[in-house]
Computed example of a mutant assay.
Amino acid sequence: MTDYHKLLGVEKNASKEEIKKAYEMQVEKIKKEVVNEKRLNQFLKIFDEAYEALISLDENQSVKENLTVAINPKEIQKEKDYSNEDEAYTSRRNSKSKAKSSGGKSNNLKRKETSRNKERKNSLNDDKEEKGRKQRAAEKKSQNDTKKAFNLIMLPFKILAFPFIVVLSVIIAVLQVINIISWIATKVLIVGSISVGAIHLYQVKMGQTINYNILILAGAVLLASFFLPYILKLLLKVLQTINDVLKGFVF
């Protein structure tokens, strides 16, 4: 069994400063040697009791020899062995952690390299797109310049075509009116030509000499009345198409 003085490693007549310094050294030492927190707290509690007991005594009062503490040096040595085992286990665990960390760093480097490759590819794609946009812009500008030159050359022809557009527009308007009127006129002409032909044939039957001119004229009027609406529609469509082409050319 060891007394408080021997536990802290001080003489029996040591001063309070020496006791305090020895206490701090012992605490620092035990903290380095003991890894297990529970056991460390037990030892610290013992050292605290020894320090409080020694520091509370008067300078002229000695501590009795029979003040002992229930601590066995063999237990400290055993605890040191435990601490060494804990330190070896901690070292192995740190080695494994470092290996994993090294593997993680390698993976991070691979990911960074992949990211840089992607960035380079994206940069190349951006450069290609930028070149494509510039090329398209240059082609569009060239086309616009060509179009402007063509319009400048075609300007006299556009001026000459403008009167034709006016004339065709007037003709188309007249034909549209005639087309509306012809629908009624053709019905009258059809009925009239049939009536004239029928009357003349009746007169021939009654003994009058046949007049082929009347029959030919009635037949011609009948055919013309029948096809006139279609002819007017076709002519109107052709003139309208020509007028639209000229308008597109001029305007």
Results as ranks from 00 to 15, higher is better:
I153Q: 15
E49H: 10
K45T: 13
D48I: 03
A149T: 05
L67Y: 02
S83W: 00
S101G: 10
E52C: 11
K110F: 10
K141F: 15
E119N: 03
K64Q: 08
K141V: 14
L160I: 14
S62Y: 13
N84I: 10
N66E: 11
S56P: 02
F157T: 12
K158P: 01
E79A: 02
K131P: 11
K134M: 14
E65P: 00
D86N: 12
P73D: 07
E49D: 11
D127K: 06
Q77L: 01
E139H: 08
N125G: 01
F150N: 01
K134V: 10
K78Q: 10
S95N: 13
L155R: 05
K105E: 14
P73F: 01
E119K: 02
T90G: 04
F157A: 03
K98N: 07
E130Y: 09
N117M: 04
K158L: 05
K128W: 01
L44D: 08
K78W: 05
K78P: 03
E79F: 00
S123M: 14
K121P: 04
N84C: 00
R39N: 12
K134G: 14
I46W: 02
D58A: 06
K131G: 15
N151E: 11
D145C: 10
L124C: 06
E139I: 15
K121G: 00
S106H: 13
T114M: 10
R92M: 15
T146F: 11
K74T: 15
A53E: 13
Q77V: 04
A99F: 02
F157S: 01
F47W: 00
Q143D: 13
K118R: 12
K80I: 08
A99G: 02
V63F: 03
K147L: 14
T68D: 08
L40D: 05
T90V: 06
N84M: 06
E75L: 01
S56F: 11
K158T: 03
R39Q: 03
G132M: 15
S83V: 02
K80W: 08
E139P: 06
R92S: 15
K128Q: 07
E65L: 02
E52S: 14
N117E: 09
K148Y: 07
K131N: 15
S91M: 10
K148H: 05
G104K: 00
A50Q: 01
S106E: 15
K98H: 09
N151I: 10
